[in-house]
């Protein structure tokens, strides 16, 4: 995001007046710091913009150049390693005939169904388990036993029980994202400041009110972090899940391209998986930061506004 044009502002900017007491509030100090930064000269703004955009882009540019060089070196055939231009060509093809959107759409639909199920169930069960210490002690061993099992290990049974197509794919994505959602919610509930619970009890809150009005909101920022992790896991296993006989989706696209030795298309599919995954991650990251701000919590590391 570009800095607002404060460049004309000469000298130190006035500190925002605030009817606070003698003790310095962190918010005031932060705001003063921010306005001081914003009032620096244009040259540094340019450098900052370059710094912001050029540095990350240069990494990708280097990768593309190395890729192109490798493709041109003649060590590998065009089928083994198609160059960036060939890959973009393949992409343009499926973009033009609309198949790309069909696959991205199918993948997103499966992803959303599985992720919503895992998130809802994981967070709900997490609240119950986190709140009822005894119940968690009973189920913790079960969860600890199942959690380290890669969803891929369930592939044969997923097909045996659920057939092929959408359902096993959704089941695999669900398995991948359920445990992070569940475990982070349990941890979040157990970490709620006991002082807040004490105060809630002091005011005569019913247990229902304590859970809904105190535990849930107090745990929410950390639950959001868990949902972020769950989202990453869900996307990673989406591709694997779609290899279980699905007839559409990005995972299917990869398998289909392999079957026809279309490595250019395959690499393009890989790129799309990366880009969509990144977009989803950024979207939930933004939501997370909003939650943090609304909750008055410390912003997550790397939060630059």
């Amino acid at each position: 995001m570009g800095a607002p044009p404060y460049a004309a502002d000469p000298g130190p900017s006035p500190q925002p007046a605030r009817p606070a007491e003698g003790e310095a509030s962190d918010a005031i100090a932060l705001r003063a710091l921010a306005s001081r930064r914003a009032s620096s000269v244009t040259a540094s703004q340019v450098t900052r913009a370059l710094d912001r955009w050029l540095v990350p882009v240069s990494g990708i540019a280097a990768l593309v150049l190395a890729w192109e060089a490798a493709a041109w070196s003649g060590r590998w055939t065009a089928e083994q390693l198609p160059g960036p231009i060939a890959v973009l060509g393949a992409g343009a093809q499926i973009l033009a005939d609309g198949t790309l959107f069909v696959h991205v759409g199918a993948s997103l639909a499966r992803f959303l169904v599985a992720y919503a199920l895992a998130g809802t169930l994981g967070v709900t069960l997490g609240l119950v388990f986190g709140w009822r210490e005894r119940l968690w002690r009973a189920f913790d061993p079960v969860v600890q036993l199942l959690r380290p099992v890669s969803p891929i290990a369930w592939f044969p049974l997923a097909v045996l029980w659920l057939g092929i197509g959408d359902v096993p794919a959704i089941a695999i994505i669900f398995l991948a994202s359920f445990f992070p959602a569940l475990l982070s919610t349990v941890a979040a509930v157990r970490r709620v400041d006991p002082l807040l619970l004490r105060i809630a009890r002091n005011f005569g809150s019913s247990e229902r009110d304590i859970v809904l009005k105190v535990v849930v909101p107090a745990a929410f920022p950390q639950v959001a972090v868990g949902l972020h992790i769950a989202l990453g896991a869900a996307w990673v296993y989406l591709v694997a899940g779609e290899m279980l006989g699905a007839r559409s989706g990005l995972g299917f696209l990869v398998m289909d391209a392999r079957n026809f030795l279309r490595t250019d298309l395959l690499l393009f599919a890989v790129l799309v998986i990366g880009v969509v995954g990144l977009a989803l991650d950024k979207a939930i990251g933004a939501a997370e930061r909003r939650i943090y701000r609304a909750w008055g919590a410390v912003p997550a590391p790397g939060d630059v506004t």
């Binding site: 400041d193 807040l196 004490r198 002091n202 909101p217 909750w295």
Partner: peptide, 19 residues
């Protein structure tokens, strides 16, 4: 047990940060 007619104030305030 805790009751509404006897309210405690704590050193660390205990305000609900999301409210």
């Amino acid at each position: 047990g805790p009751q509404r007619r006897v309210v405690t104030l704590f050193q660390s305030y205990g305000l609900f940060p999301w409210r």
